[in-house]
């Protein structure tokens, strides 16, 4: 049972990390255009586009 002392904090920290990443992605607008994101990967991305897709 003593393994719980470090296993549980590790599990919770991993979970919190996932939560933080999810919230960051939502705040950064990554869920704003789910339809477009699905098909964007199918197209080449010319150098110029990287500058303007913010």
């Amino acid at each position: 049972m003593s393994a719980l002392v470090y296993l549980i904090p590790i599990a919770l920290l991993l979970g919190l990390g996932g939560l933080a990443a999810c919230l960051w992605a939502a705040r950064a607008g990554q869920f704003d255009d789910l339809d477009g994101a699905a098909s964007r990967i199918l197209f080449d991305d010319p150098e110029t586009n990287r500058r303007t897709r913010k």
């Binding site: 704003d32 339809d35 500058r51 303007t52 897709r53």
Partner: peptide
């Protein structure tokens, strides 16, 4: 001159 050009396909 363009610094952002982003078209949202959903909206």
């Amino acid at each position: 001159a363009i610094t952002r050009a982003r078209l949202n396909a959903t909206t």
